[in-house]
Each structure stands twice: as structure tokens, then as C-alpha cells.
């Protein structure tokens, strides 16, 4: 492969995390009335802080509607944030003008959940994969065709798939096309928004392996958003657990699965089916449903369903607690450990 290799080292001498997300907030207005007055806010993401290091896979898990997709899209500034900061390679993403943002987007890409709606049905595979190169004037004519064919090859498709249309491919193949499009610009970071959730298990395994290979080859970082614990356990270096727009716990993958601290993480892990049906594991059943993000509970957002709820959980926001040494990187937002 030529051309597609990323430059080694940090551009601009930037060291530290590739992506630093600080107190990210995204509220959606609920409009009503004649002049569309804002009557309420849906707090989809509320004060989320994390970072992603170069070459790392950062898993973001949580149940449907907890705001994980919104985090992914806001981090790429596909949606405008309500508050907080995101810096990518040391540059403030939210302060960028349109031109700088377009240039920066070359280094951060997204792979979508639904392989059926993420490809334009009226464009050929070749023009879909070649579009990023064309938009940034990186290649044209023969050169463009060559590079697109290389990309198709790299993701396990054949160059003769170039003139075909998305509807002619299976779900797994479409996801490969989406990955080829994301790779076209040599990004540093790829946000995988439930990238394998819509595929069946054997195809999932192929795509996950492809993602791992590409990561090793191009030193990619992934923000891997999913609800599938088995997938992140296999793929992620560190995992963040999200509940109702806030982070509950962040830990290295192995630590999270062996020594989860937050009651929500514990409940989530206990709901994860194990491959061996003879192993009995205790199921922690949470009472009730997830409260609406329109009017989230005060204090700890999990207190309405927490088995260990205490009186002050209901009023006071839980502080960030480091479990063990700070280098271990195990953080939890819970009053249980603040004593």
C-alpha cells in the first residue's frame, strides 16, 4: 500500500491524548407553541469527561438512549455542543472556523451503525469511497481510481466492485465500504458508532478483526460506541460506562470486567450472557425503568434504581473517585467509595 500510510509521530509536536473531552454537554431543546419557544431541554450528554490516547481503543458502553451516540457525533462536531471542550491533537475543536474544521475532519472519521442508510443509494461504491479524496482535492482521475481500488482491497472487497451500487451488497460488505470511506483520508481517530451492532455474529467477528488489523497497521485510535459488552471486552483498551448522559465509571477493560465498582456497571455486567450455560452467575435486577432525560433525577442519576442508595445520593452529585492508584486509571462517580 502506498500513500495510505499515516505519518508517524505527532503532528505539530503535540504530545498527550489524541482526543481530550472535557465537561461535554449537549442539550436538545424541546420546542412548542406558535413561535417554537423552548419549553424544556433533553439533557442527552451532561458533563462528560474522558480522553483517548493515540493508538488506543476507547469503548463507550451504555443502554439505548443514554447519550453515547450523541457523544460520538458531538465529538466530531457533527452536532454543535451546548457546552464543554473537545480538543483534538491539542486544538480546540469547538473554536474552529469552517475551513479549519474541514481540514481537521480529514483526521477524524466516523463509521455508522446502519450499513443500509450510511451509503448513498444513488452513488457507486467507487464514488462513495472516493468522495473524501475528491472533496479534499487529494486525487483525481486515474490516481483516484487506483487509490479507491487499494482501499477496497484493504477492507476485503474486490476492485471490480467499484462500479456497483450499495444495494447490491450484503450488510457486512456495506460496512466494509463504510470503513473504506472512513480510511480514505488517513484519519487518526475513527468513531465507530455501533459499527457492528447491526451485523450478525459471524460477520461481526470479521469486521472486528478487520478493525483490529487496520488499527495495528495505521495506528488508529477508535472511539468504540456500543451496547455489546462482549465486543468491547474483546476490542477495547479502556471502557467508559454511561448512564443517562453522565459517565458512571471509566476503567481499563480487564479491570472493569473483573472489578467493577459502580452499582450500575455491576448490574450491567451481570446482565451480560456468558458463553457457558452451566455457569451460574448472580443477576442483579434493577427495579423500574431508566428515568427520562427530560427531567433527570437530582443528585446521582442512578439513585432511583440503585440497590445501595443512601440518603445523600438523592441530593448531592457523586464526586469523581480514583480507585487504587491514579496511574491505574480506574475512575468511578459514586458516593459508595467517597468515605
Amino acid at each position: 500500500m502506498v500513500d495510505v500510510k499515516p505519518s508517524d509521530g505527532q503532528p505539530g509536536g503535540h504530545a498527550g491524548p489524541l482526543l481530550q473531552v472535557t465537561n461535554l454537554k449537549k442539550y436538545f431543546p424541546v420546542r412548542s407553541g406558535l413561535f417554537s419557544n423552548v419549553s424544556a431541554w433533553v439533557k442527552a450528554v451532561d458533563d462528560v469527561t474522558f480522553d483517548i490516547r493515540p493508538g488506543e481503543t476507547f469503548g463507550l458502553v451504555g443502554e439505548s438512549g443514554c447519550g453515547k451516540t450523541t457523544v460520538g457525533r458531538t465529538v466530531l462536531r457533527l452536532q454543535e455542543p451546548t457546552g464543554g471542550d473537545v480538543s483534538f491533537e491539542g486544538q480546540d475543536l469547538f473554536a474552529m472556523d469552517a475551513k479549519t474544521l474541514r481540514a481537521t475532519r480529514r483526521r477524524m472519521q466516523i463509521v455508522f451503525q446502519d450499513p443500509y442508510s450510511s451509503l448513498n443509494p444513488r452513488m457507486t461504491v467507487g464514488s462513495i469511497v472516493g468522495e473524501p479524496l475528491k472533496v479534499h482535492h487529494l486525487a483525481k482521475g486515474r490516481d483516484l481510481t487506483d487509490r479507491v481500488c487499494q482501499l477496497l482491497n484493504r477492507v476485503g472487497l474486490r476492485p471490480d466492485h467499484y462500479p456497483r451500487y450499495p444495494h447490491e451488497f450484503s450488510g457486512g460488505q456495506r460496512q466494509r465500504i463504510g470503513i473504506a470511506r472512513a480510511l480514505a483520508l488517513n484519519p487518526k481517530l475513527i468513531v465507530c458508532d455501533e459499527a457492528v451492532s447491526a451485523l450478525d455474529v459471524s460477520i461481526q467477528a470479521q469486521i472486528i478483526n478487520l478493525l483490529k488489523d487496520l488499527q495495528a497497521e495505521y495506528r488508529l485510535s477508535y472511539l468504540f460506541i456500543t451496547h455489546d459488552l462482549n465486543v468491547v471486552q474483546y476490542l477495547a483498551d479502556r471502557i467508559a460506562v454511561m448512564y443517562l448522559g453522565k459517565l458512571a465509571e471509566v476503567a481499563p477493560a480487564a479491570t472493569l470486567f473483573s472489578d467493577a465498582k459502580h452499582p450500575y456497571t455491576q448490574a450491567l455486567l451481570s446482565a451480560n450472557p456468558l458463553p457457558d450455560p452451566t455457569v451460574k452467575h448472580e443477576r442483579i435486577l434493577l427495579p423500574g425503568d431508566v428515568p427520562t432525560p427530560l427531567n433527570p433525577p437530582t443528585g446521582c442519576r442512578f439513585h432511583t434504581r440503585c440497590p445501595h442508595v443512601m440518603e445523600h445520593c438523592k441530593t448531592i452529585d457523586p464526586p469523581l473517585i480514583q480507585i487504587g492508584k491514579p496511574e491505574a486509571g480506574h475512575k468511578v462517580w459514586c458516593h459508595l467509595y467517597s468515605g
Binding site: 455508522f112 448513498n120 472533496v135
Partner: peptide
């Protein structure tokens, strides 16, 4: 709201391209 339109924005396509290459044909 379709992903392929969001994808076009995320690869850095301008409004004009998003409208005429992706939305109008569909």
C-alpha cells in the same frame, strides 16, 4: 438525518455538494 448525508458532512463536503450530490438525487 440519514447517515450517508451526515457521512458526507463528516468527510468535509460543503453544503453545495451535500445538497446536489447526495440529497437532490434521492
Amino acid at each position: 438525518k440519514q447517515d450517508f448525508v451526515v457521512a458526507a458532512t463528516s468527510v468535509g463536503a460543503r453544503d453545495r455538494r451535500v445538497i446536489f450530490a447526495h440529497m437532490v438525487p434521492n
